[in-house]
């Protein structure tokens, strides 16, 4: 299934004020993989994600989603196959009710009304938020907003899910619930986050970005146990890998993938 592949080659990009954001990034993600994208603030994570759905175009290098390179001409196909969940759900839920927001994507795909309805119900069900259907987004809790934002993306039936900080601002229980939800998805997943413990549980593979370049790319268990690498990249060991705060002994030196 070649069209669930994400391939980035020698990607370079600078901000409008000419600060370089990405300096030659290359990787390839296969169908069904779940990949964590970690790095300090300003390492280029969000900029990279914006290239994956064609909100930004590479200055140099290429981004391919399945059979298509990301260009202005292929945008409709790209946006249909890549679903992006943004960091602040308030930016993503822009319609006045949950139902309309989830329907926004399918309506833009110009699906017939019955199909739109089906997709709304199905995607809200899969994120356990069908009961929120008629509610306005501003009256939802943080966790509910996040679930609805994901439902809105799922309603596009994407092949690839791209998520920016899905667990930020959630209380521990909402975070756990979200992680269980994400673990149940079979899509190709790319998750950018500072929540290294979440990456550890959800993603078998991790890419570390540092100042616009890839500092490491490999199995999460190995990458997130490499203290030197993490410190160099402005990160630290996931709590689960750190020693026990009371006895000081390392209890999770070899985390479950």
């Amino acid at each position: 299934m070649s069209h669930h592949i994400v391939e980035v080659k020698d990607l370079e990009y600078s901000y409008p004020d000419r600060t370089p954001a990405l300096r030659g990034v290359s990787f390839r993600i296969e169908h069904g993989e779940a990949v964590g994208l970690v790095g300090a603030n300003g390492a280029g994570k969000s900029t990279l994600l914006l290239h994956l759905n064609g909100c930004l175009f590479p200055e140099r290098g290429t981004v391919r989603i399945g059979d298509y390179p990301v260009t202005r001409q292929t945008l409709p196909q790209i946006r249909r196959s890549v679903g992006t969940v943004f960091q602040d759900p308030n930016d993503q839920l822009f319609m006045p009710t949950v139902e309309e927001d989830v329907a926004f994507g399918p309506i833009n795909l110009q699906l017939p009304p019955e199909e739109v309805e089906q997709r709304v119900v199905r995607s809200l069900e899969s994120t356990n938020s069908l009961h929120l259907r008629q509610r306005p987004p501003y009256r939802l809790s943080g966790g509910e907003k996040r679930s609805v934002a994901i439902a809105a993306v799922l309603a596009m039936s994407p092949d690839i899910l791209v998520m920016d900080e899905p667990t930020s601002g959630l209380d521990p229980r909402a975070r756990r619930r979200l992680m269980d939800l994400l673990a149940g998805f079979t899509h190709t997943k790319i998750i950018a986050s500072h929540d290294l413990d979440m990456i550890l549980s959800l993603c078998p593979r991790t890419i570390v970005l540092h100042q616009g370049t890839i500092a490491a790319d490999g199995p999460t268990a190995a990458v997130l146990a490499d203290q030197d690498l993490l410190l160099r990249s402005g990160l630290e060991l996931p709590l689960r890998v750190q020693g026990c705060p009371i006895c000081g002994r390392s209890c999770g030196g070899h985390p479950r993938p």
Binding site: N53, R80, E99, E100, I107, L109, P113
Partner: peptide, 20 residues
């Protein structure tokens, strides 16, 4: 700008369509 990105990501092309 962020909302714009989110709308683009969900297929918005400048033609407003709403649920009827």
């Amino acid at each position: 700008l962020r909302v714009h990105a989110a709308m683009l990501a969900r297929g918005f092309d400048g033609t407003p369509r709403t649920l009827r």
